[in-house]
Amino acid sequence: MFKAELSDPNILKTSFDAISSIVDEVQIQTDSEGIRLDALDRSHITFVHLELNAGLFDEYVCDEPEKINIDTDELVKVLKRSKSDDRVIMSLSEGNLIITFEGEAKRTFKIRLIDIENESPSPPELDHPTKLEIPFALLKDSIADIDIFSDKIALMVDKEYFKASAEGEFGDANIEYLHGEKIDSEAKSVFSLEKIREMLKADKFSDIATIKLGDDMPLDLKLKMVSDEGELSFLLAPRIEA
């Protein structure tokens, strides 16, 4: 039996909004510890990992591990119908994921489970030379700034600053943020703006993002809940000079 009840639907809504723009299908694994998923997009550019611990939920029951294979578009369409003060209840029944919103009315959706052939990949351990925390809102703003001139974004870290920049045909944009961390090295990688925008749809997760950067290395972006009961993280392959 699996049942998970949450008083705030926004976490699920925004996480799966990000996840659904990266992967079409996903395998959600549940056990007594909580819910997790690992997924790699079709072109192997973005990897996403979600972890929601049992403690995050108001009620959580999972007496044996389950695999919930689901079409992420269908799931997001349903989750987007939630109102912010609805309670969300997820359960499984005869090949369906049941999602119930309890608010003014009780609304129930059944989403058919699908077959997924590929095993979920485990994330690689990467050894990034730099790690820093930056406000999520600043990252989101930077994307909008860069978007004026380019579809690529260069992310750089040095001893003092985190920098985002772009050089476009019609102009340049530069964002500098004094990170205040103890960082001894420098790193720079270039990424697709569109791919970063997809990841940053996960709004409500955390106000702080942890970023790891290297030279021409994947971007490691981690959003961790203040309560430590949930984590959403991404790896994004860089663009490199041809």
């Binding site: 990897f47 994947p218 663009r239 490199i240 041809a242």
Partner: peptide, 14 residues
């Protein structure tokens, strides 16, 4: 000019 890489190499290394 730049080209998009994939995560494949990094997955293999781990």
């Amino acid at each position: 000019q730049s080209r998009q890489t994939t995560l494949d190499n990094f997955f293999k290394k781990s």
